[in-house]
Design a protein around this nucleic acid. Structure first.
Lengths: 121, 121
DNA sequence: TTATCATTTGAATATCTGTTCATATGTATT
DNA sequence: AATACATATGAACAGATATTCAAATGATAA
């Protein structure tokens, strides 16, 4: 997915501002961290998952109720909950046959609120 | 991309908590807004774009210098800058042959900082 | 056990997306 | 005008991904 090249880019474009390149290269966060950030945003980058998370802002919910609210199949929701679960964004508890999902973390809502603000500006 | 179904889901799962379904359905933000949020996060959901934005946190930069910092081709960077431009996340100014890109908005860094915090917790 | 129901899972498919390569555009210099 | 260089763009390809369908778990009740 990430292709880290050993060879130098032979593209025609040369460095224009070597000092800037050097300074920015040094200050740029570790590539691992940036990769994780991208992975987190990738999970947020699907409208079904966004809608699931926003629904969970209001209340914990079981799979079939989420499916009802989003008017989608229970299977599709379950697949997406799996993604959210793997990203540690939701947690769940079992009550008989029913599985209730809820937010794993309060940071999520903060990030979303920032995004809402950004869009509405 | 979004398939809004007219028909009811005939899946076996029935509503478990009608009150919750009703309450959450009413409180859920407009689907258009949620779609826009997902689109924004989708743009953030690629490590190349994340790295470009983080580079621009430090300083405005021209295309070839960004390519140098990320060790990628100028073409790949240019394609991604186009995506960031369309999402109104970066702006640019021309200086002779060189085009300098910079952040369009301070919200971006705030959102990223939240994401960093979330990951490091 | 058997039947029923909520949820999960795997495979298949259609769509989307990021990079590369080749080429075009735009600007300055000679 | 011709050349050089920074950037942009289009087509093509490979890899990723969301939903559907069918089938498997897991849990309760009869």
């Amino acid at each position: 997915m990430e292709n880290i090249k050993e060879t130098l880019q032979e593209a025609s474009a040369e460095t224009v501002n070597p000092e800037v390149v050097k300074a920015v290269s040094e200050k740029l966060p570790d590539i691992e961290l940036l990769y994780d950030v991208a992975e987190l945003f990738k999970v947020f980058g699907d409208s079904t998952r966004v809608r699931i998370l926003c629904a969970l802002f209001e209340s914990e919910m079981c799979v079939c109720d989420i499916a009802q609210v989003l008017d989608m199949t229970q299977s599709a929701i379950s697949h997406q909950l799996r993604v959210l679960k793997q990203a540690r964004l939701v947690k769940y508890r079992r009550d008989g046959k029913t599985v209730y999902y809820s937010l794993a973390d309060d940071h999520i809502q903060t990030i979303f609120n920032q995004a809402f603000e950004h869009i509405m500006e």
